[in-house]
Simulated assay, not measured.
Amino acid sequence: MQDRDWKAILKKVGISFGVISIIFTVTVGGFIVANLQHMGRLARVVQLVQGDYLEKASFGQLIDGATRGIVDSLGDPYSVYMDAQENAQLMEQIEGKFGGVGIILSLKDPKKLTVLRPIKNTPAAKAGLEPGDVIMKIDSQDATTIDQEKAVSLMRGDPGTKVTLVVYRDSAKKTLTVPLTREPISVPTVEGEALPGNSDLAYIDISQFSTNTANELASVLKNMDMSKYKGIVLDLRYNHGGELDAAVGVASYFVKPGPVVYIVDNQGRTVTKSAEGNFLGKPFVVLVNEESASASEIVSGAIKDEGTGTLVGVKTFGKGIVQTIFPLDSGTSVKLTTAKYLTPNKVDIHKKGIEPDVKAELKKGEEATISPTDRNYDSQLTQAVQILRSKIK
């Protein structure tokens, strides 16, 4: 009786396995048949290049090119394939330490390599590069035909090595050739001081979000002794973002415990990132502009939704998507857009930006006074101080 039971069970298992095998075969076979023409085309191109192309091309070179092409075909400027050198440079940027010339590029027009600002005390700043300079050539490479990722990789390099930039300066209507020697670039992402002329107001500028930014902010706040200040100006202008967890860590000082951002993937699954309970509890304003993007919008969006501070400036950039870096072989990687983020009120700001609570624009030709050294504030900072004063009277 038991033998018969086992035979019946095995028969059912065999039938089930057979059905699954058929389904698998049909599914995979259908995929192969549907894509056979494309795969054949790819194989044919590889064959032609290796057999008939005038120059030598390694198989690894072709695989790199094909991989890059697959990611580029997505049409997403934030999804990129990175070779070993580009991947290493990105890791250095995330850590905030690298060899280069010290240029931050503007996000406003991704097809144009415009200098947002040179980093203080770097080769670019010492050579006199200015915001608005457009990079036309990097050594012998035509910079008008490459993306920002490629441009950054060309400008980075070992300290002591040289690179020459050709830039167009619209304000002077002339082209400049600027030879530079790369140096170790260690970018402090947080600067804090008493606001010149307003000793009871703390001014904090966050230039980007690296892995250490939240720790830097904690250190700056401790060294400043925040008990001496009645209010805070948080400057996030020209901050292109960076590391997600760093943004959450920073937001923890400016919103009460609770959700800072919701991360939603392509299956609708949601991860909640919450403030850590470091809320300062002081009146503050946040300066934002059209170049405040990504992680800086996570901080700004949480503050606006929670109503703990006042956003002053103009509408932010509108990058509400999250990229994940997937390591590949031989030190390469692919960076893909894998999720979108929503503010605490479940607002999707991608391609929309965040409207400030109080609109304040720079005057024509006026430059922002980031980390001011005197009372000659720009129009946005002036208005931010006025609003903050009204809060602490």
Rank of each mutant, 00 (worst) to 15 (best):
L107C: 02
T122E: 08
A295Q: 11
K222M: 09
H38E: 01
Q89A: 00
E216C: 09
Q37A: 00
L10A: 09
P184R: 02
S73V: 06
P131D: 07
V286I: 14
S390N: 06
V347H: 03
A143F: 11
P118Y: 04
Q383I: 08
Q386M: 05
R237K: 11
A218E: 10
N121R: 06
D357I: 01
L280I: 15
E149F: 05
A151W: 10
S371V: 14
L116E: 00
P257I: 00
N266L: 05
T373R: 15
E86M: 05
G69S: 12
L328V: 13
K351A: 09
I135K: 06
V220F: 07
G307I: 08
S333W: 03
A151V: 13
V248G: 06
T310A: 02
H240W: 15
T316A: 12
I146F: 09
I325L: 14
S171F: 08
L362E: 06
K162T: 04
S390V: 04
E291V: 11
R389G: 01
V190M: 05
E276I: 06
I387Y: 03
E290S: 15
L287H: 11
E297M: 06
G60P: 04
F24L: 11
K352I: 11
E361P: 01
Q383S: 10
N289C: 10
E95Y: 09
G69M: 03
K162A: 14
T164R: 14
G320V: 01
E306S: 13
V115T: 12
V271K: 15
A247F: 10
A127R: 02
P327M: 07
F326E: 09
T382E: 02
Y341I: 03
V250S: 08
L90S: 01
I204Y: 00
Q85V: 04
I20R: 08
I146K: 03
K111S: 13
E149I: 07
K112P: 03
D378F: 00
D3S: 14
Y203K: 03
D357N: 12
G197L: 00
V33H: 02
E290I: 11
P159N: 01
G160H: 02
E290Q: 15
Q47H: 15
V264R: 02
F279S: 05
T213F: 10
R41Q: 10
T211L: 15
N215V: 11
E193R: 15
T310P: 07
S106G: 15
D147Q: 01
G197V: 00
V264W: 02
K173W: 08
P257Y: 02
E367Q: 10
K393Q: 09
L10F: 12
A88L: 07
G30A: 06
L195W: 10
S207C: 03
V46R: 09
Q61C: 09
K391G: 09
N198Q: 14
H350M: 00
